[in-house]
């Protein structure tokens, strides 16, 4: 199975730190950062580089914070 590599763009000003995405990421790539956005929420950040672009985070996120990309590695 060709290996895939994913990545996400986080719209940090929109994130409300609800943490719903953290538990659904199969690669435990997400965690609450310790910086706050303009609204005062601690926003989500990537804590590792194992993203496979599965989009679970984007699907559960109420506020469409994530944009997800995926590429086949050959």
């Amino acid at each position: 199975m060709a290996k895939v590599k994913g990545d996400i763009v986080i719209d940090l000003e929109i994130c409300k730190g609800c943490e719903l995405c953290i538990s659904v990421c199969p690669e435990d790539t997400l965690g609450l950062g310790n910086k706050i956005n303009v609204k005062g929420y601690r926003y989500i950040a990537k804590v590792n580089d194992n993203c496979t672009g599965c989009s679970n985070c984007a699907i559960i996120c109420p506020d469409s914070v994530f944009t997800v990309y995926r590429m086949k590695l050959n």
């Binding site: 672009g53 997800v68 990309y69 995926r70 590429m71």
Partner: peptide, 13 residues
């Protein structure tokens, strides 16, 4: 940057 390319997009708002 290689991954975050238009044609690699799988999910957006």
């Amino acid at each position: 940057n290689l991954i975050i390319q238009e044609d690699n997009l799988v999910w957006n708002k």
